[in-house]
Amino acid sequence: MMLFETTDLTYSYDRVTALDRLNLSIAEGSRVALVGANGSGKSTLLRILDGLNFGQSGTVRFRGEPMTEAHFASDEFAFSFRRQVGLVFQNPDVQLFNPTVFDEVAFGPLQLGWSKSEVRDRVGETLDRFGIAHLKDRVPHRLSGGEKKRVALASVLVTDPAVLLLDEPTAALDPRSQSQVIDLLVEWGGGAKSVITATHNLADLEDIADRCLVLDGGLVVAEAAPAEILRNRELLERSNLIHAHRHHHRSGELHSHPHVHPSE
């Protein structure tokens, strides 16, 4: 049985089509990267896979169960789903709404009905593991970008979800914070969990995924192992993931080569 399956999934914002009759299957235990330029439909797809938005047509299934608004109206299905699936948003500011970092990390487990002693123990462990124990009494929205991202990750990973959805986990981070986030994700995944990451940062692709789906215009235009995708320059240029960079050498010769923006 597939973890997620979409059939002819379509989603539009007013007159802009984000997903256009999208068909994809994601297997249990896989580490998948959704790669695409801005506006390719990655974030929309993640929100649909997390049951936050619902397509205007087509179907989405999670382990064979249909994901519809009617299903999520039931507490039983909603809580069961939320215990298994976690989503880290691209913008940590929208994810940090509690008065302290400790409360922020404790929010999810409390909503999911964990006992208070279990929440206290697990939050303490998670803060230590993410190196943010010293921030536990700070107001989350006043932290630096890298710290906010780590708190956002901790607030989702504290429940140890079997399925993790990540929206641009290294976006707008300095190089050191980027590598810390990637290290945390690699360490957490351990190869046993399902991780779906939306990114246009090609530099991290081989660390975070075993399989890549390239999205362009709301459709999957390619699907392969990261190394294979990275070798396909024509595909990457066509999907706006790299572009030709031209510059002059001292000799005056105009030189051109593919160019990636890893930290965008």
């Binding site: 936050l52 909603a78 809580f79 948003f89 409390l110």
Partner: peptide
């Protein structure tokens, strides 16, 4: 847009309207 995103982020972590505190 931001306020909608905050609400979705709360829902994504299991918020169903009730407030639970430690």
């Amino acid at each position: 847009q931001l306020s909608g995103d905050v609400y979705l982020a709360m829902q994504a972590r299991g918020f169903r309207g009730d407030v639970y505190l430690l």
